[in-house]
Design a protein around this nucleic acid. Structure first.
Lengths: 226, 226
DNA sequence: ACCTGAACACCGTTCAAGT
DNA sequence: ACCTGAACACCGTTCAAGT
């Protein structure tokens, strides 16, 4: 025991095991003792790698944010609404196309780990990947011609929508038990017990509808700028 | 001690004290022992009124949802896009106006208690006020002419946006410490340290911009229905 | 019915001790 | 430098005991 010649732990291994635990059993299941057991070490060992549990959680969160694709923003000069189309790549796409691709990647990364979204939604804090994300979105919108104040608001409202959509499944929030929906109390929810069974398509459809509506609404405002 | 002739506790008193604790010190500060101390009783006393801490939390959540105004949906027959305007009241307003008024009330209720939003966002479950809310929104959209599948999606996407906006302040998520934003790493965030100082207006502006964009985008789709 | 104290299996974190 | 066991002040919950 005591110090082994090759370390048993590393920040990477700890973060990976913590994320697995959170995904599988929820945020409450992440205890330092439980995590240590999962890694076959004793509880206090973790404190050689992270000062506190919060610092560990911060690292987990930033590893998730690091999965978000930002390549659509790395264009030399952002083009306006009337650019050549083609939704992939990184050059010559409109801000709407960039925002749409980014929102999908953002949601996919978060929805893969819904249990950690409440932590992540608190904002970038001092986490490098989260700050890089905010920088890329804001920078791209400003270079596309949005005034800085508007660009800030768009970054915010997109985060509202994406974190909200990844925080929890809408469909799964309705119990599959038909007896819950008493017609006298909830006259329009007679079919709500079927929602949970179509979880994936309902949530996907709602996200896509909302995303397109949002982009259309923003395009209306963009047209009024000039 | 033992049983007093007039009960020391009630579900209402417990819920109110729990919400106060969550608002003031966060979800983690709500422990049964701490809450009991706040109410001048011993820890196990709470179990005479709630079977588990989760059941107590459910009651707290539903009390918050109960604050959301749903009166804009209680109109005899919902009117279409071309109704007489006037954004208050409850009769003869368009679905857009109803949705806008509801979204503002919904956000206000949630934003007053941001620390409990992660719990609340899990869905209505079996909570009566949450089910009433879902019923009112869905019913109104269907009566306004939206197909049921679309109405479900709109209910979902509105919840995404509202819960996302109430979960955490966008502006407050950026540290006020200017040294965080190294120009080499984050070339566009030079002013981000000022965000936290304008917390209220930034988040309010983002919410209103997103809400109007969403409603405009949905109106485009509504027009295509007929 | 409604409160209490004692007890159980848990927490995050500190610290002295080992190599 | 990196791990350990013991210890501290906490948790949620159960239960027997009181009125």
């Amino acid at each position: 025991m005591a110090r082994p010649r090759t370390p048993l732990l590393s920040r990477e291994r700890i973060v990976a095991a913590a994320l697995r635990l959170i995904d599988d059993e929820g945020l409450d299941a992440l205890s330092t003792r439980r995590l240590a057991t999962e890694l076959s070490v004793s509880g206090p060992s973790l404190y050689n790698h992270f000062a506190t549990k919060d610092e560990l959680l911060d690292a987990v969160v930033d590893s998730v944010i690091g999965e978000v694709d930002l390549s659509m923003f790395s264009t030399d000069s952002a083009s306006g609404t009337s650019g050549t189309s083609g939704s992939a790549g990184g050059v010559g796409i409109t801000w709407q196309e960039a925002l749409r691709d980014w929102a999908r990647s953002y949601r996919a990364a978060l929805a893969a780990h819904p249990n950690i979204v409440p932590v992540l939604a608190q904002g970038p804090g001092r986490r490098p990947n989260a700050l890089r994300l905010a920088d890329a979105v804001f920078g791209h919108l400003v270079e596309s011609g949005w005034p800085r104040g508007q660009a800030t608001r768009i970054g915010a409202l997109m985060r509202y929508f994406v974190t909200g959509s990844a925080l929890a499944s809408f469909a799964a929030g309705f119990p599959a038990d038909a007896e819950v929906y008493d017609a006298a109390d909830y006259p329009h929810l007679g079919e709500a017990h079927r929602l949970a069974g179509h979880r994936g398509t309902v949530d996907e459809g709602a996200f896509e509808t909302g995303l397109e509506a949002l982009l259309d609404g923003l395009a209306l405002r963009y047209a009024r700028l000039a």
